[in-house]
Design a protein around this nucleic acid. Structure first.
Length: 435
RNA sequence: GUGGGUAUAGCUUAGUCGGUUAAAGCGCCAGUUUGUGGCACUGGAGAUCGUCGGUUCGAAUCCGACUAUCCACCCCA
């Protein structure tokens, strides 16, 4: 078979046989977010390019080489969102949500787009669950944010996930720190790897994260941010830790965490797994106290995180976490002959009105093939109505698990018994009933 | 953008030293059972062996390029 085209590199189809896994996880996230008082926000997939170049930062890799940017017929420059925060922040400003009483707490599910080379846990289209809190500088907000992520992972039964936190300070103290870093690394200029050398001046904090043995050896004794951040930032970070301790959330301070998006300030954190390959960060986020101002608003300290859906699902699969199967067909009804088929169609409709899953033939199959199909879709019961039975208002009902058959009358009593059994406790009493 | 691996039916794979019609299991369709699924048996459909080119009497097999895909760097969720 030669299909005319295939899916775009770095995209994935979620097939009907797998979508319940996404729905299961999404459900838990929605519930958890709403328990914390967060409401969903939905923003467009594309935005004016400047939102990202200003918000995410002109010098970041994401903006410089990973954005899907194109021109419209009217010559506007449009970009598919590479992350979720900028759009949410834009909507916050555009609709004056700061008048609704701060802080504003929102969550979202988005698809994001980055032009990267795909590998395990990294696609060109990927999906994020995200949270944003606009309008609070209090360290308790940092702790709440992290605790929601933690609560979700716990509910999903995920193991061996390390929470790593750090503070990268405010723009003022970070400048001091970067100066100190450049000074330090300059002593080892001859030994550094070419990439590190190249970004020594531009983004010295990234050198801390280099994996080359030589660089990481040098980085070990480099000055850490925490020695350089100003007093306010230090106080804030200490308070965040205190809140986490009181919530009994374990964390590791990792002074090498450096987020690659420019908007981050003060607290940054990651939930990291060793189980899913090189792209182990399942959830990452932090404060972005300057972002709203950068986008033209007043100073509005804020924070948020993004959680990679594909990475999370991958992790759950690797850890063998079982996701409950979706409900299957409750009853399959086959009609033999024209009149019986019409009757079957009507019965199916009635049963569906009680929110049971009822199916029948819509492919013109013979009885045998229909039974096979009923088996395939894991129908709990099947019913066959023939012309003679139709006259007597009866049908043959079969328990698909035991194979037992009974003749039932298609009257009110049957339906009320059938539904009652379902309401009681689906399978058990129903199976009894059919015996 | 830079490396490395892989490419045979819907899926998982076999295919020897280059040799005739490319093989199996699962799945799909049908029959054995004209009104009953699973089990069993029988049959059927389904593959330009990723693409193009080269070597050769002869290529799924050897060589080259391209494409796709996977993994890693980089970056991040």
């Amino acid at each position: 078979m030669a299909i005319i085209t295939r899916k775009i590199k770095g995209t994935e189809d979620v097939l009907p046989s797998d979508s319940y896994k996404w729905q299961f996880v999404e459900d838990i996230m929605r519930k958890e977010a709403s328990v914390f008082g967060y409401k969903e926000i939905r923003t467009p997939v594309f935005e004016h390019t400047e939102l990202f170049s200003r918000g995410v930062g002109e010098t970041t890799d994401v903006v410089q080489k990973e954005m899907y940017t194109f021109s419209t017929k009217g010559d506007d420059s449009i970009t598919l969102r590479p992350e979720g925060t900028a759009g949410a922040a834009r909507a916050f400003l555009e609709h004056g949500l700061y008048n609704d009483g701060l802080p504003i707490k929102a969550y979202y599910f988005t698809s994001c787009y980055r032009y990267e080379k795909p590998q395990a846990g990294r696609q060109r289209e990927f999906h994020q669950f995200g949270l944003e809190i606009f309008g609070t500088a209090a360290p308790s907000a940092d702790a709440e944010l992290i605790s929601i992520g933690k609560a979700i992972f716990d509910r999903l039964n995920i193991k061996n996930l390390q929470l790593e936190i750090n503070s990268i300070g405010c723009p003022t103290c970070r400048a001091e720190y970067q100066k100190a870093l450049i000074e330090y690394f300059n002593q080892y200029k001859e030994e550094l790897c070419p990439t590190c050398l190249a970004r020594l001046e531009r983004n010295p904090m990234r050198l801390l994260d280099c994996k080359s043995p030589v660089c990481s050896k040098i980085a070990e004794s480099a000055p850490t941010v925490l020695e350089y951040i100003c007093n306010d930032c230090k106080v804030h970070f200490e308070a965040v830790k205190k809140y986490l301790d009181s919530l009994k959330i374990e964390y590791k301070i990792n002074p090498k965490i450096v987020r690659g998006l420019d908007y981050y300030t003060r607290t940054v954190f990651e939930f990291v797994s060793q189980d899913i390959g090189a792209q182990g960060t399942v959830c990452g986020g932090g404060r972005y106290d300057g972002l709203i101002e950068e986008l033209g608003g007043t100073h509005t300290p804020s924070l948020g995180f993004g959680l990679g859906m594909e990475r999370l699902l991958l992790l759950m699969e690797k850890q063998g976490i079982e996701i409950p199967l979706p409900p299957s067909c409750d009853i399959y009804i086959a009609g033999l002959g024209e009149q019986a088929e019409l009757k079957a169609f009507d019965l199916i409709k009635q049963i569906r009105q009680s929110s049971l899953i009822a199916e029948g033939d819509i492919a013109g199959k013979g009885l045998k093939a229909q039974m096979k199909y009923a088996d395939k879709i894991k129908a709990k019961f099947s019913m066959v109505i023939g012309d003679e039975e139709l006259i007597k208002n009866e049908a043959t009902m079969k328990n698909m698990q035991t194979g037992e058959k009974t003749t039932v009358r298609l009257d009110e009593q049957f339906f009320s018994d059938f539904f009652a059994a379902y309401i009681e406790n689906d399978s058990k009493s129903l199976l009894d009933m059919i015996k």
